[in-house]
């Protein structure tokens, strides 16, 4: 894996890429399973599809699929397209030609959170207090939880889902709906959740500007404090050695190899950016990490060299979506102002 952090041109201009005016705030972005399409969830109900190949002809903008905002988007782990959730209460499967079919309809609720599991082809989604797992033609319901689900993720093997809510995290076994869920309790409101890529830890961001991590094996937990804002974005490295967190002006990674992060400061590196990181995305394979700032700045970091480069200068419009292509060469970026970027970072 070679990404060109030393390319001096990137200090002045954007790396090669495609920039498109999306005409609505971006809530999320994602790549299709094969990386051929980048998709952007927009604040006017549209899901804008762009070719992953930055030299291919641009695909036209489509009609709105959702009634209001498209709140969540993932690449479809069971197909070539995407799965989207909206504030119209609909969960949709989107084909590569942009046409959609409804999977679940929860009128009056918002589909806010989505996660996909590649190996099993399952999608987890939450609307209000209930989580849904869609696999094949089957839709299973989990919940209701004690409050609205504010983040969810699959376990490494895809056999379980974890849901964050007020008071902690609930873990359900997908194959055995009747089995009582496992609860991990911590007072306060949990607003983001990511299960570690090795399955050993569950991390949440809380309303009180800290992060909470449970160790699955012993059900022990730890709290990391000192953030100036809520940590809404969490990202584990592919090797599960580090957990990246947003809400800092530099890349911030908690070490989880060996004895874990207890009593240690996080690893912080890179150029101090304008504002705070709003979205962070660890590279799917290598030692890189992308960070979008609430100022609009975009940085690419390398944890090995502890360096970073600015890919895009601050422009006042917060980065709201970041996604790596599965091959790790392309980055999809979206912001509040509705700028859609697909960057090609291949050396």
């Amino acid at each position: 894996m070679k990404l060109d952090l030393s390319n001096p041109a990137w200090h002045q201009t954007l790396p090669p890429g495609r920039a498109v005016a999306g005409d609505a705030p971006v809530a999320a972005c994602a790549f299709s399973k094969d990386g051929s399409i980048a998709a952007f969830a927009l604040g006017d109900g549209r899901v804008r599809l762009l070719p992953g190949d930055i030299n291919a002809g641009e695909t036209p903008a489509a009609e709105p699929l959702h009634g209001g905002v498209v709140l969540a988007l993932v690449g479809d782990p069971a197909g070539d397209g995407f799965v989207s959730g909206g504030d119209d209460g609909r969960l949709l499967r989107i084909a590569t030609d942009g046409t959609a079919s409804e999977i679940v309809n929860q009128k009056g609720k918002w589909f806010e959170h989505l996660a996909g599991h590649r190996a099993t082809g399952a999608v987890a989604a939450s609307a209000g207090k209930t989580a849904f797992v869609v696999k094949g033609g089957e839709v299973k319901e989990f919940g209701p939880h004690e409050s609205t689900v504010a983040g969810l993720d699959f376990s490494k093997d895809g056999s379980r889902i974890a849901c964050a809510h007020y008071g902690g995290v609930t873990v359900w076994s997908i194959g055995q709906v009747t089995l009582p869920p496992r609860k991990f309790v911590w007072r306060g409101s949990h607003v983001a959740l990511k299960w570690s890529t090795d399955g050993k830890f569950i991390a949440t961001g809380t309303q009180e500007n800290d992060i909470h991590v449970w160790r699955m094996a012993q059900a022990t937990d730890m709290r990391m404090q000192g953030y100036p804002a809520k940590v809404k974005s969490l990202s584990w490295t592919a090797d599960a050695r580090f957990l990246y967190t947003s809400a800092q002006p530099v890349f911030t990674a908690w070490p989880f190899s060996g004895k874990g992060p207890e009593g240690k400061p996080p690893l912080q590196f890179g150029e101090e950016g304008a504002g705070l990181i709003s979205v962070v995305a660890a590279h799917p394979a290598a030692e890189f990490v992308a960070g979008g700032y609430d100022s609009g700045e975009l940085q690419l970091g390398d944890i090995k060299t502890r360096r970073s480069v600015v890919l895009k200068m601050a422009d006042g419009s917060a980065i709201t979506g970041l996604a790596w292509s599965p091959d790790g060469y392309k980055l999809a970026v979206g912001n509040e102002a509705g700028t859609l970027l697909v960057l090609d970072l291949r050396r």
């Binding site: 005409d23 609505a24 705030p25 809530a27 209001g68 905002v69 709140l71 806010e112 609205t148 504010a150």
Partner: peptide, 11 residues
């Protein structure tokens, strides 16, 4: 908090 954040994503 959640709803206001969601509403602010509207075009």
């Amino acid at each position: 908090i959640r709803i206001i954040e969601g509403l602010m994503k509207r075009k």
